[in-house]
Design a binder for these strands. Structure first.
Lengths: 113, 113
DNA sequence: ACCTAGCGTTTCTTTCTGGAACTTTCCTTA
DNA sequence: TAAGGAAAGTTCCAGAAAGAAACGCTAGGT
């Protein structure tokens, strides 16, 4: 089965994962929940390449999790803000945060957010 | 940043995703929550190739989300069962299930689990 | 005129994934 | 006792996706 065929899967979990289930998308969402909205912010904080970032943002907008909003007209600039739909996924990330804190402690440094 | 560098990231969400954040791992977990335990069951239900499945199962065992347990010694056979650690991620999948049901309705058929 | 910021896009190389057959170890059935 | 099958992986190859890093575009600052 191809990843793209998952969006009509019988299982709602599979359909959700067809949208947010890849390596970087959930990390972008985390950044959104932390208040980031701009391309450059995601690019610097997220760690993925700009290439991938542009692609994932487009997909998140298409599916209605983020909204692409012009915040400046003179030099055309857009940022990305969470929609209500996007907010509904926040609890899932919260669970992952707690799980990571508890089960995957950092070895190199003790800093934690 | 490479995916593998994520396991010592400052962010607990990132660390969690370094373990379960890829295309198929969460789908394997879904199967676990549905009661599947055997390699062949995952292979048939999940839709991923056996290749990838073997790799992901190994990783889930290494990190302690699943336990590889011999259920037959004569022909050596193993199955994979959730640990307590693994059970703790169930709520995240539940949220994704609900989100998918609500926000990504099926177009082709009306069957739903 | 030149530099910088913001938001992507392009190119090239490396890594990962999909598909399908193959292996190994036993068990069953004829 | 030979044939066939089941379970749990492995191996091989072609094609898709990701990483790195530079390039492009628009517009404002100096």
């Amino acid at each position: 089965m191809k990843w793209s065929e998952l969006n009509d899967n019988w299982c709602p979990v599979a359909r959700t994962l067809s949208v947010v289930g890849d390596r970087w998308t959930l990390l972008i969402l985390r950044d959104c929940y932390l208040g980031r909205t701009k391309f450059e912010e995601f690019a610097q904080a997220g760690g993925m390449t700009r290439h991938i970032l542009a692609d994932r943002l487009k997909r998140l907008v298409e599916v209605g999790i983020l909204e692409r909003r012009a915040y400046s007209t003179a030099p055309k600039r857009y940022d990305y803000v969470l929609t209500a739909k996007g907010e509904e996924l926040r609890p899932a990330l919260t669970i992952m945060k707690e799980w990571g804190k508890k089960n995957l402690p950092i070895r190199r440094s003790a800093v934690e957010g």
